[in-house]
Simulated scan of single mutants.
Amino acid sequence: MWTQTDSTSDNESDIVAEDIDLDSQVPRPVTSNVVSESESDNRSENDSDYSFTSEDNMPLVRQFIDDGYMQILVTETYKYATQTNVPVWKPTTIDEMYVSVAVILLQSIVNKPTYQMYWTKRAKLATSIFREVLPFKRFVNLKKNLHFSDNATNNAESHPQPKLNKVWPIESYLSAKFRNSCVPERDVTIDESLLLYKGQQGWIQYLLLKRARFGIKTFMLCESQTGYVLSLIIYVGKGTTFEEEYKDLPMLSQTVMTLMQPLLNMGYCLTLDNYYSSPQLADFLLTKSTDMYGTVRPTRKEMSPSFRTKKLKKGEVAAFQ
């Protein structure tokens, strides 16, 4: 059954002994404490009611950010540092990489205008944990050389996603983790998320109805009940790659089928908004033993002609079978 509503889509070394010289400050990038548009909806309206304890959450974090993930960072950072002949470079370790990533995450919670201020010893400005876990100069050196892929072996012609070559090992690793760490319930959904980004990239999207407005768009397949991300596709414009067997379908249908590929022929039920849905897609999913429901735009192909002229008021619904 097809349903039309008037709703619209959302597509839219050594610890520094002296005080840091605050007169020679290194500005923090504006994206240092950026978060995804898809924030948790389960938090209480009162922030004091939301608690984060390491005992409860660290096993979950380590399910994804594990030693294998950190080994990629350690290996590729070492390669980049040797390729660029960084002076006085000391190879890093998995444990040190954990600490440096933790420092970056903590900096998004403890906000200061410059990096140096995190390591200052001035009583009114000091946050001692940063000096205790990692020296300032070592942190700067690690962050400057942090890398996720090998520049020497990158080949745009053979790479599965050339525009994402800088982050591809990490994206592939996490995507596999997402798929293998959870068996979803029957109901799943697909929607877009926008990661705030205002740098120079050819595929930056502007979506008025999203919280970030400007950023990198990601198509995500999620479990409906929990919001758990099962798989994702980073949209890079014309170069976005989908499963080859769906190349004859429209782009949005290719997106849906590529995301749903691991769940096809297993009896799942997919919910879509009118940005993705169409009779053609619904029929194709049925051949894969997958149900689909949601709203649909009256101008989609194979829609009943009466839907094109039907005027609905707010809250009204029209359907045909």
Rank of each mutant, 00 (worst) to 15 (best):
T3I: 15
Y173I: 10
T255E: 07
N145H: 09
R297F: 07
P184H: 00
R300G: 06
E96D: 15
F52V: 14
R122C: 10
D14P: 10
A156G: 12
N33E: 07
E171C: 12
K121D: 02
S38D: 10
P162E: 01
V183Q: 13
I65F: 14
N111P: 08
M97L: 01
M1F: 12
N151Y: 04
Y235W: 01
Q107N: 09
Q83W: 04
D21K: 07
L174P: 11
T299S: 14
D19E: 13
F307R: 00
G267D: 04
N111E: 11
P262T: 01
D291F: 13
V236W: 02
V140C: 13
T127D: 06
S278W: 06
S231T: 11
Q225T: 12
G68A: 13
V296I: 15
P160T: 09
Q71R: 14
S277Q: 09
V16Q: 02
F242Q: 00
V140M: 15
V236R: 06
I204M: 02
A152K: 14
E132D: 15
F320H: 01
R308L: 07
M1I: 13
T299I: 10
I233H: 12
D23A: 10
F242A: 05
F214G: 00
I204T: 04
N165R: 13
K313H: 10
R297S: 14
S253M: 09
I104W: 04
T93S: 11
V133I: 15
P27A: 06
K79D: 00
S9M: 00
T127S: 09
T153P: 03
R297I: 07
A81P: 01
T82A: 11
S44R: 08
S306W: 03
S289G: 02
S13N: 13
D291N: 13
L286C: 12
C182R: 13
I190R: 09
W168N: 01
R179Q: 14
G239Q: 14
D47L: 09
